[in-house]
Design a protein around this nucleic acid. Structure first.
Lengths: 220, 220
DNA sequence: GTCTATACGTAGATAGAC
DNA sequence: GTCTATCTACGTATAGAC
């Protein structure tokens, strides 16, 4: 009855597209459930049901629970980080505006996207426990990291900071601060105000300027 | 033969002491295994065996796997953090020495005590997922946090920073930075050099000074 | 107080129907 | 390609011996 190489494609949704949609839905559900229950704590049945499918459908799209998790680790974790890079790109790092923008992003990540930080933590733990995944994760962080470095590098030059201050180092500090503050805010929101990240960045860049010109002398 | 209220105490190891020792050994093993496999990933049998006991002995000392984990969360997590507070106490925060000392501590935590950061991550995830444990965890972090605040407060006063800079805020920034850098170093050691934390602290405090006295004016 | 043996539930993964 | 049913293994927790 239903020939398979001739008939289908009735509503612009080919078989391949339908499968791709299923995959996407499963990945979305997996991100939520993994974030809420952890890699080992989450069950494949739970994930499949949350996506509206059965475990059979899940295994038809992914070889194993681990493969599903690793695909998230490779493909999904950049979403928010890329957003941060964009937020930085529209202003200059070190300026009050960029700091304020990043501050807002921090609050968003910590408060609105409640699954983000726990999922990142799961990724980090998995990477730390599985050396082969460690390189994958480090690689995935490199791209947005370079974007951050680039913006910081530009900003440092504009501020007249000396060449003794590599943008790479500053980018690391900013990234670490961001992560750390997001996690602290989840534990105790009152300890990490909405303006704190912006404030810290302001201090940091002022300190870099001061370190470049300790007593007020400039030029190199 | 062996009367129980009269005879024992032959090698200075009473029954109560023996049990306490068992508990300690189980807790030590639990810390290791939970750090390496995660809360859900670790099995009680694994933990018991690592401590040299059986699951029966474990359940004779703890009501459940969760109770064991919660005891670690409540009692053990302060070890390293208290150490940080002590490191700060011997110098003044903001001084080059204190910064260097903390920098060494960071490297120690990141490289030597390989179970510390993953265990903290497990605690954090558990707290984020279990609101009732969240308060427990936040409370446990408060004590060393106050110590950090105290030292920073003193240091700020010495440096002539204005009252507009609360030590509480600075302490949060320092703590977040520490956590964030430890985790980044585990992913990519080359991105977080041994001197980076000290460097970041130096910048931070210089920036605070500069913010207090923007163009070079002092006095209050 | 600790061990051995086990009950009971649940989870990852597969097989075969549709 | 997805679902239902199931196989198998493992993990928590308990019971009873020593």
């Amino acid at each position: 009855m239903n020939g398979e190489h001739d008939a289908p494609r009735r509503q612009r949704l080919t078989r391949a597209e339908a499968k791709a949609r299923t995959r996407t839905l499963l990945l979305d559900a997996a991100a939520r459930i993994f974030a809420r229950k952890g890699f080992t704590g989450a069950s494949v049945e739970e994930i499949a049901e949350a996506a509206g499918f059965s475990t059979g459908a899940l295994y038809s799209n992914f070889n194993s629970k681990e493969a599903l998790f690793l695909e998230l680790l490779s493909d999904r974790q950049n979403d928010r980080i890329a957003e941060a890079a964009r937020a930085l790109d529209s202003h200059e790092a070190g300026s009050g505006e960029a700091a304020a923008e990043l501050g807002r992003l921090l609050i968003d990540v910590a408060d609105k996207d409640i699954d983000f930080a726990p999922l990142q933590a799961e990724f980090w733990l998995y990477a730390v426990r599985n050396p082969q995944a460690l390189e994958t994760m480090a690689a995935k962080l490199r791209e947005p990291r370079r974007a951050l470095e680039q913006v910081i590098s530009t900003s440092l030059a504009e501020r007249g900071a000396p060449e003794g201050v590599p943008a790479e180092t500053v980018a690391t500090v900013v990234a670490a601060l961001f992560q750390g503050l997001v996690r602290l805010r989840r534990l105790d929101p009152s300890s990490v105000s909405e303006e704190l990240f912006a404030q810290a960045l302001t201090w940091l860049f002022a300190g870099i300027d001061a370190a470049g010109t300790p007593t007020g002398a400039e030029d190199d």
